[in-house]
Structure formats: structure tokens, C-alpha cells
Design a protein around this nucleic acid. Structure first.
Lengths: 202, 202
DNA sequence: TAGAAATATATGTGATATCATATACGATTA
DNA sequence: TAATCGTATATGATATCACATATATTTCTA
């Protein structure tokens, strides 16, 4: 499970609380790589604590609730190091939009096009949140201060590249379907489908 | 859950058994889009059956075990149609290799390079299994027989494009890291790390 | 002819992920 | 001043996924 290691990696760099992990790490950089919700983060912190991978100091703030600042232990560092040099099998492909498009022959043409447009909007939005790190050019490498900065820039560049590829492909799909004038004629395998007068549901 | 709809989509096209779903659908085309293991398929079939989305005829083969050929019901078609015209939020990004690379400043340069090479091998292998569908060019659109064929070719093209983007990016990472001669010098934030004489484990 | 592979379905268990909701309290704002 | 927002942690319930294993029979192969 990579959430364990994602959290260890963040804490190895900067000790912080569960709330900070959510707000500062998983809503930004690390979240562009491995997304996790709040409940998952707190439960994983509990587990890491039980396993001795992390420890914490509760900061008593007068009036306010305690803030637990977690830090990685030596055991946690060892475990992280071991994971770093291992190799995982590739993460499986699961894309619900593709499942839809795969079956979209059952829809009239204009509906397929608007499906694609909706997906383009979502991916365009995602592209904005990925806040485009500047591409690393040959001469820039020497100007970057540390290995860490170079690796993080490289890492955060992939989600951007993948999102662009997705958007290019969506545009390609749109064009192909759009320039097919006969697509709204009945096709073998497509169900007869009238425009529902009343939208019945189960 | 898209597995439900992936199965309904396949059965809407061709009635088949759980075993066939695994071998003919999820080990090939649909599996390039939404991967699922055998246990998941059978349990989802049970659920779809309970919910009245599918039905089956058991083929009594003398001697042999019964083969249950599942087919979609009207209720299943309605549910599938409803899902087809809905919009899901984007699937979350979770990439364990990126988590590793994000933290790879703690590793010596040559290890980062071999991590990248290992990942390249895995993605190159995946690219082969995706068995490259021919790209759809403008003139080809008219020669393809049906809307279904066009949409399936488009659908199966995306995983290929994404894999190529991944491979390009891996090559880029390799180059950037490789041409940085000072990368093996100690960096702020990286742990001191000697070449272990004995590989101790927890 | 013994054993392995292919066909075919099924369950047990644990790990993970998701979604909703609860608690607590200070600070801001309408 | 009531409501909402931001900080902070936590759990209950459910959904989903992953991995191992069990059963039964035929066909292929060494």
C-alpha cells in the first residue's frame, strides 16, 4: 500500500499533523500523485503509530484542541528505505469514462459529443489544479539548487503530461465522431431509443 | 461502481458466462480499460442477478459442469442507459512509482536510474499487451463499418497513448538525471546512507 | 497412464477506500 | 448574536479489491 509510504515520505521531510498532511500535502503536491481522503489519512497514521513507524508530540495549545505533530522513527525510515528500492507491479488501469465510451454506440451522436465535452471540462479543470511546473531543460538542471527540487519537478510533470495526452485524445475523439455524418443512422447492436417524455427511474 | 456497468456493457453486446467474461473480456479489450479479477467478476454477477439486472440459462452439458450464460434484462438495460448519460467525477490519481520518485532524492543517483529503467521495462511490456490498435485517420473513418467499431478503436487507443506518454516521460527523467554529474554528492535532506554490508530487515 | 492444463464456478478473509457524521472550539462575519 | 468557517481528530458503515484456495470434469501431453 503506497499511502503508508506516501505519508512516511512526507513526514521524513517535514513532521506535521494529520490535518496538515491533508491540507498541505494531500490537497497539493502528493495529492497529485496519490490521492487520499481525510479518514484514510487519520486511520493510516493510527496504524503507522501502532507499528512504531512514526511517533508524535501533542502540542498543548491553551484553549485549543491538541495538535499531534507526527514524525518518522528510525523503524519508519528503514521501512521507507526498503520500499524505495523495491519494485511494485504497475497499477491497474481503471477508467470509467472509457467504459462509457466503449459502450457509447448505443447513444445518439450528439450525446456522445456532449459526453466528450463534459470530460474535457473536467480534465481542463484538473490541468489547472496541477499548476503546471516549468519543464526542466538542459541548462536549467544546473541552476536548480538540489536533487530534491529536480526530482519533484520531474515527478509533478507527469500528471500534467498525462492530462494533456488525455485532452488531446478527447479532442481527437470529438473530431472523428463529429465528422462522421452518418453516425446518427441506426446501427446494428444499438437499441431503439426514443427521447423519454418522462424520465422514469427505478 | 464501474465494474457493474462494464459487465452490463459486455453482456448487453454478447451474453456469456463468468468464465468467458474473464477470459474473453477482462483479459483483453475491457480489461485494458477496467481491470478486474475472477473473484470480483463472479461476485458482481451474483449481485447483478440478485438485483434483477441480469438473468441466466444453465446449459446442462452431459458430464461437464453447468455453464451459466448470463444475459442482460430490461431492468439492466435501463440501469445501463441511465449510467451512460450520467457524469462521474474523474477517477483519482494513484501512482506508486511517482511516490517513489518523489522521495528518490534519498537514493544515490545510479539507483534512481535503475528504478527508472525497471519502470520502463514494465511499461514497454504493457504497451505490447495493449496490441496497438491502428490509429483512426480521416479517410479510415468512412471505411470502418459501424459506429461501434469506431468507438472501440478510439477507446482502446487512449491506454496506448497514455503508456507512450509515460514512456516518453521516463526517458526524459533518465536523461535529466543522467546528465547531472553532481547528483551523487550529498544533498541537504538526504540521509547518510552507507552501502549495507549486511542487508538487515525488520 | 499419471499429471497438468483448461474449463467452470465459488467462498473466505483481509486490506483499502469511500462516505457520512460526530466532536470540540476559536475566529470571523452577516 | 447566531451562523458559518477553519482548525483538529475520530469512528461507523459500507463498498470494493486482492489474494488464496476449493471444487469438479475434461482434454491434452509427457
Amino acid at each position: 500500500m503506497s499511502l503508508v509510504h506516501a505519508i512516511l515520505a512526507v513526514l521524513d521531510h517535514t513532521p506535521m499533523s494529520g490535518y496538515q498532511l491533508k491540507r498541505e500535502a494531500f490537497d497539493n503536491t502528493i495529492g497529485h500523485i496519490w490521492s487520499a481522503d481525510q479518514a484514510q489519512i487519520y486511520r493510516t497514521l493510527d496504524r503507522l503509530l501502532r507499528d512504531g513507524m512514526i511517533d508524535f508530540e501533542a502540542e498543548k495549545q491553551e484553549g485549543r484542541l491538541d495538535k499531534k505533530t507526527y514524525h518518522i522513527t528510525q523503524k519508519g525510515k528503514d521501512s521507507l528505505d526498503e520500499w524505495m528500492t523495491s519494485t511494485d507491479p504497475l497499477d491497474p488501469i481503471r477508467d470509467s469514462f472509457l467504459v462509457r465510451l466503449y459502450h457509447a454506440f448505443s447513444l445518439p451522436n450528439h450525446q456522445v459529443l456532449s459526453m466528450i465535452e463534459a470530460e474535457m471540462r473536467q480534465y481542463t479543470e484538473r490541468l489547472h489544479t496541477l499548476e503546471v511546473p516549468p519543464p526542466i531543460e538542459d541548462e536549467k538542471v544546473r541552476t536548480l539548487k538540489s536533487k530534491k527540487e529536480v526530482l519533484r519537478a520531474l515527478t509533478l510533470e507527469l500528471p500534467v503530461r498525462l492530462t494533456r495526452t488525455y485532452l488531446d485524445w478527447l479532442a481527437h475523439c470529438f473530431d472523428v465522431i463529429n465528422q462522421s455524418p452518418d453516425f446518427d443512422e441506426p446501427q446494428a447492436g444499438a437499441r431503439e431509443r426514443q427521447v423519454n417524455p418522462q424520465n422514469r427511474r427505478a
